[in-house]
Design a protein around this nucleic acid. Structure first.
Lengths: 116, 116
DNA sequence: CAGGATCCGATCGGATACTG
DNA sequence: CAGTATCCGATCGGATCCTG
């Protein structure tokens, strides 16, 4: 049930649970997490919109990562009681702080990943 | 032979090769890469020292990531002709720029991953 | 539309053994 | 010491099908 469990197998926790920075690296060091956050920075998005804008992510992977982000309190899920159903995902205020990380990556990217 | 090939299977390139930012996210969105860079920020390190300080990374995984970092020009390998052999890995000047990313993650970590 | 359930191949990554 | 090679189980993640 726990997706990002604090009780990881002993070896991994040695790499991850040692310090806040390492914990963050283990969490953030995931392509999908970063891509999701990057897209949500522009504003709330619906599940399928997110899915399509990310270029072939499976619904399984997407919903799993969204749950991880929710558990950590970085993303908030909001479901509207409509038919057909509408669900929006938005960054929480603490989630917004991840924008700085994306920004740092972006600056690095412009210098070192453009037209290379 | 190519570890981080530019010719990825079509689906993945759609998520990664679209923009510099996405490329960077795909590269940086890797726990091991981030952990290695984090450790090398303090200065050059030898293979086994790196290995041990990272808490149970296999030599296979470590050497593979180091190669990826070398291919991108973020890490430089320097072998000394001694016995027993000594090899040091250091961040290149462009690799040092990844320090800003780590710094951003660290600031985020202190706020959101301490004693949680 | 938003996602859960299942199946399954592909990849990852550790353990181990070996080499210069 | 600094890796490479191999084996193999575990995990990942896509495809597909199904539901409220």
């Amino acid at each position: 049930m726990e997706i990002f469990d604090e009780e990881l197998p002993a070896e991994i926790s040695q790499a991850c649970a040692t310090s806040p920075l390492r914990s963050a690296i283990c969490f953030i060091g995931d392509m999908w997490i970063l891509l999701i956050v990057m897209h949500l920075l522009h504003g709330p998005m619906r599940f399928n919109a997110l899915r399509e804008s990310m270029g072939h992510i499976s619904s399984k992977t997407l919903s799993q990562r969204l749950k991880m982000l929710e558990e950590k309190g970085f993303v908030q899920r909001e479901a509207f009681l409509e038919i057909p159903p509408r669900v929006e995902y938005r960054l929480t205020s603490t989630g917004q702080e991840l924008g700085d990380v994306i920004k740092a990556i972006d600056q690095f990217a412009e210098k070192n990943f453009s037209a290379k």
